[in-house]
């Protein structure tokens, strides 16, 4: 980042935070973060659950997402439709509803009652629909001539995908995938619906126990931002580097 840009961004950030704090102070609300601090262990547990659920769901989403993308890119109509159907159902219903159905409907059938396992899997399956679209767009963004060149050399379909298409597509997918990781971090808060105590659920519990709902929420908001802002900065950096590399051949 150029020094001038950095300066402007820092100044605006500080001003916005100051304005927020000033507004809170003017409201004459008497802040008391002491009870919140007493519940730091609960926040810590929530943080671990949020991190764990997000990371595992992201990994599951990657694996399933590649599958969804390949389904939707299939030459067979029936296979393609299966992929379309999956994406439509997942994207057309709220995750809150999906995870409830997964926990109370599907998990008993599979004799599972581990909340973390079921919730994380549901979150991963949810992410797969969105990540599948990212993968599909990335694969389709690679010029047709690339596959033709690969096939003309005698590479199989799978080899062409693995060695020619994916390496090029993946580079272009990094920024949107980072965005998806940020979205998942927040989406994981909905796992409270099946009784999983992640960060947001922890904050609600602190609020309920101490009646300091506002303080508890401000704390958890700051925790989310601590997780998501670095990711978002990283995504922007990668994007800039990517733009440069597509012009001059610097490779990620």
């Amino acid at each position: 980042m150029k020094p001038r840009e950095l300066l402007v961004r820092a100044a605006i950030t500080v001003a916005a935070v100051a304005a927020f704090v000033a507004a809170l102070l003017l409201s004459r609300y008497r802040f008391d973060f002491e009870p919140t601090w007493r519940y730091r262990a609960l926040y810590g547990k929530g943080l671990l659950v949020t991190l764990g659920a997000t990371a595992v769901a992201f990994a599951i989403g990657m694996a399933l997402g590649v599958g969804v993308a390949l389904l939707r890119l299939s030459r067979r109509l029936a296979v393609r439709h299966l992929g379309d159907l999956y994406v439509e159902v997942i994207r057309g219903t709220p995750f809150l509803v999906q995870v409830t159905i997964a926990y109370f409907g599907i998990a008993p059938l599979l004799r599972l009652n581990d909340k973390f396992l079921v919730g994380t899997f549901a979150l991963g399956a949810f992410a797969a629909a969105y990540m599948g679209e990212i993968f599909r767009a990335g694969i389709e963004s690679v010029d047709r001539g690339q596959v033709e060149a690969a096939r003309s050399l005698g590479l199989s379909r799978a080899q062409s995908l693995r060695h020619v298409v994916f390496p090029q597509a993946f580079k272009r997918m990094i920024p949107p995938l980072t965005g998806e990781l940020i979205a998942l971090t927040k989406e994981s808060s909905l796992l409270f619906a099946i009784g999983l105590v992640e960060m947001t659920a922890a904050a609600r519990q602190v609020g309920a126990d101490t009646y300091k709902y506002l303080e508890a929420s401000i704390v958890v908001a700051a925790m989310y931002l601590t997780l998501t802002v670095p990711l978002s900065l990283l995504a922007r950096r990668l994007e800039r580097r990517l733009k440069r590399s597509e012009r001059t051949g610097v490779h990620l």
Binding site: G154, V164, P167, H251
Partner: peptide
């Protein structure tokens, strides 16, 4: 397909591989 070598109007080189990587890819994989 490998029995015929195809040269395209727009080259269709693999941008993520070096010149050597482009030439060596198929013999290595296949």
């Amino acid at each position: 397909r490998a029995e015929t070598g195809m040269v395209f109007q727009h080259f269709n080189l693999f941008p993520h591989l070096t010149a050597l990587g482009n030439v060596a890819l198929a013999p290595r994989l296949v």
